[in-house]
Design a protein around this nucleic acid. Structure first.
Length: 467
RNA sequence: GUCCCCUUCGUCUAUCGGUUAGGACGCCAGAUUUUCAUUCUGGAAAGAGGAGUUCGAUUCUCCUAGGGGAUACCA
């Protein structure tokens, strides 16, 4: 049987980091087994679902590189099918109408809690005759779940988890307005979509027991369940907007590479021995359910950043340039010309060596496209002393005399200048860097000289003449 | 309150009864170096607590504590 997994977010907000990991695991599992990975939008909560959220989820998935098979399923559009199953259950005596009011329900829970009993619906309409129904009340449809015994979820990550059936009350299948609830919809959709493996957050573990009861009542096969632990914020508490619970697009905007985030998320809760840097190809080859950990993990930006730097250093120059360009355009408020792009790409090899994010890459490539005369920052300014300026002017002459302008010739010229001035290389390199980049931090100075070219380099040096 | 799950360095984790408890991030020290970064070397750093099973427990069982999740006409 081919494996079919699905990711089923509700479009009530962006695709947050926990959801992204769930999607990643489902995707990896499907790809590993050469099965299908489906996407279902659980939009049955009409109040809270929004089109913007749906778009954000699609965008987030695409950015992360998690491609799904087939058209996404919109759960709300399948409500008739869900209701049909509910009616079938009523006909079979496996579900019933309940006329209890919200106040009654609230009282019920309160007294149960006070008496130390599980706060569940007491089944007061379970066996009552429909003729007793109060007039003018739209009933909900409840599932007649077993009162005794236990339900055990055979979870591939958590192991067998046993629930006493008395803990699980008669859940609502259809609301008073006739729309299906989540419990019913998932079960029906998963079956209709042919889902073989459900991989989701372990906040659904109790739901799995209820859903299993429902599935068995209908007479369908129970899919494999894998409930993965949640991701916590750095403080160990549930992810909130203050720390990690940002949408994946926020990570993109912070300058993280999707491949780095994928790698990081994969290692959060899954392991393959001592391997840390795992390409997507390897991840697909290695991924399994057995090596998913059972405890919640905390989100650690420092480690993500480290991985991001590593992926940036190994990334293709043209690819990085294409990511940097729009950021640069946005930050400078001007379009980046193709010549400037060439310049950036040429410098990228030196730039990416010291970048931790795409944003810092953009920041550090700013000097390449800056207009003369450069505005020097304070530290750079302090390096251009009168003495340094004089040295730089003599260096400019020396550079001007070069017949060829390439990495070797410029290095040779600068080294020769240092020797002639009886200066350590650093003494000439730092002022030079300040003049060329306006800052004190940049790629190797010979690299900068070479990339900038003769005209810009000499021009920028002469611009800092102090007299 | 009730039910369920979890618990190895600060963090992510390896270990599937016998290890000097390993790796990675971060941190500290040193080396390299034209800045920064990279790279390299070294270091500090962990089995929540208590019983039991066993010749032997981080590993298996139970209890306690702590953390998390679920308890909706949300998903």
């Amino acid at each position: 049987m081919t494996v079919v997994t699905r990711f089923a977010p509700s479009p009530t907000g962006f695709l947050h980091i926990g959801g992204a990991r769930t999607a990643l695991f489902n995707w990896l599992y499907a790809r590993h087994h050469e099965g299908k990975f489906l996407l279902r939008i659980e939009d049955t909560d009409r109040e809270r679902s929004t089109d913007e959220a749906i778009e954000a989820i699609f965008d987030g998935m695409k950015w992360l590189g998690l491609d799904w098979d087939e058209e996404p399923v919109f759960q709300f559009s399948r409500r008739d099918r869900h209701a049909e199953i509910a009616r079938q259950l009523i006909d079979e005596g496996k579900a019933y109408y309940c006329y209890a009011s919200k106040e009654e329900l609230a009282d019920m829970r309160e007294t149960a809690r006070a008496e130390g009993r599980p706060p569940v619906y007491d089944g007061r309409w379970r066996d009552r005759d429909p003729s007793e129904a109060p007039a003018g009340v739209d009933p909900v449809v409840r599932f007649k779940s077993p009162n005794e015994g236990v339900t055990v979820v055979h979870d591939l990550v958590q192991g067998d988890v046993t629930f006493a059936n008395e803990q699980l009350d008669d859940m609502i299948l259809l609301r008073a307005d006739g729309t299906p609830t989540y419990m019913l919809s998932v079960v029906v959709d998963d079956y209709d979509m042919g889902v073989t493996d459900i991989i989701r957050g372990d906040d659904h573990l109790t739901n799995a027991a209820r859903q299993k009861q429902l599935i068995e009542a209908i007479g369908w096969p129970v899919p494999n369940h894998s409930h993965i632990p949640l991701i916590h914020g750095p403080d160990g508490a549930k992810l909130s907007k203050r720390h990690g619970a940002l949408g994946v697009e926020a990570y993109r905007d912070m300058g993280y590479l999707p491949e780095a985030l994928r790698n990081y998320l994969l290692r959060l809760g899954w392991s393959h021995g001592d391997d840390e840097v795992i390409s997507t190809e390897q991840a697909i080859e290695w991924f399994n359910l057995e090596n998913i950990g059972k405890s919640a993990a905390r989100f650690d930006f420092a480690k993500l950043e480290n991985l991001n730097g590593l992926y940036i250093r190994n990334a293709d120059d043209a690819y990085l340039t294409s990511l940097v360009a729009p950021i640069l355009a946005k930050n400078t408020g001007q379009e980046i010309s193709s010549n400037q792009l060439k310049l950036i790409e040429k410098a990228m090899n030196g730039l990416k060596e010291r970048a931790k994010s795409v944003n810092s890459l953009a920041e550090s490539s700013l000097f390449l496209i800056a207009e003369r005369p450069l505005a020097l920052d304070d530290k750079a300014k302090s390096l251009i002393t009168e003495e340094a300026s004089a040295v730089l002017m003599r260096l400019a002459d020396r550079l001007e005399a070069l017949e060829q302008w390439n990495p070797e010739t410029v290095e040779e010229a600068v080294r020769a200048a240092a020797e002639a001035e009886n200066l350590k290389l650093g003494k000439i390199a730092q002022p030079l860097r300040a003049a060329l980049t306006g800052t004190t931090v940049s790629p190797g100075i010979f690299d900068v000289l070479n990339v900038l070219g003769r005209e810009q380099s000499i021009g920028r040096i002469r611009d800092v003449r102090s007299d």
